[in-house]
Write a protein that binds this DNA or RNA. Structure first.
Lengths: 147, 147
DNA sequence: ACCAACAAGATGCAGTTGCATCAAGATTGA
DNA sequence: TCAATCTTGATGCAACTGCATCTTGTTGGT
């Protein structure tokens, strides 16, 4: 059916398809490794890592949501789960009555530490081992252009 | 926290993070364009395209699910929706009593034709325009190594 | 000071996904 | 041939996501 090409070369369409399929496949493998180790999903790690980096000030939910490219309602729910699980604290925001400030707590830092070894091995196995240094740099460069 | 590096360089971790974030961001933009045109999600297109390519024999659900890297239960549900929407036909499989054969019908082909112009423009805008020919080829090459 | 517009965050509801499991049919091996 | 095992596909249930909308609070113009 894609033969009203107009302006996309076959190579371009193939590259697009590969980007979508392969990145999704690699990501699922990594998620599966986390799950196999009885650990929460990557989004928990990402959120906690951002909060760890933002120490000791913490982050507003909307800041976290920008960094993670999540929809607002998804961030609202993710912070719910993280707070319910005891990995973050939510403090009232003094300069904005609507807002809150999210801070990682010590349980959250513990989770990061438990997740990282598994995550690291998964990245190594499903990503890093398949590319040498130059290739990694090249991939990185191409991806940046897409941003 | 990632400072028990062990064997992953910063560049590797950065490249990994970019792969996950950027491919997801680009994909969402494309999905959003489809939705804005009142069209179904990409997975419908992918499934119908595979069935179009498999004409006139059609495909077994498990074959489609391998090509699309979907979980079995997700394929079962996707075919449900596609059939309910009238885009595919499910025939009994003569050589396997459990099985069925999925075939795209003319409404399905019509949907492919309506989706492709929107999809093509979205790929162009969010992907193709950001890379030249060499860069596209380079990205494609790196992705293949990840498979 | 006031009101309109806007931003932050939460939530009800419907649709989707993940997980576990099931039923029915194929395959195998003794 | 016939039971044990495996494969194909469906489904109940819980969790998650998307969408629309709401509440509460801030901001900017007059």
């Amino acid at each position: 059916m894609p033969n009203e090409k107009r302006d996309l070369s076959d190579e371009t369409v193939t590259a697009w398809a590969r980007l979508v399929r392969i990145s999704q496949a690699v990501l699922s493998k990594v998620e599966a490794d986390l799950k196999a180790a009885d650990l929460p999903p990557l989004s928990w790690y990402d959120a906690l890592l951002e909060l760890e980096r933002a120490r000791p000030d913490g982050l507003r939910p909307y800041q976290l949501q920008e960094r993670m490219l999540l929809a607002q309602y998804n961030m609202s729910r993710l912070t719910d789960r993280l707070a319910k699980a005891g990995y973050i604290e939510r403090e009232d925001c003094s300069d904005d009555g609507r807002g809150q400030i999210l801070k990682i707590d010590s349980a959250g830092r513990g989770l990061l530490q438990r997740m990282w070894p598994v995550y690291r091995k998964a990245i190594a196995a499903h990503f890093a081992e398949k590319l040498d240094t130059d290739e990694t740099a090249a991939l990185s460069r191409m991806l940046i252009k897409l941003r």
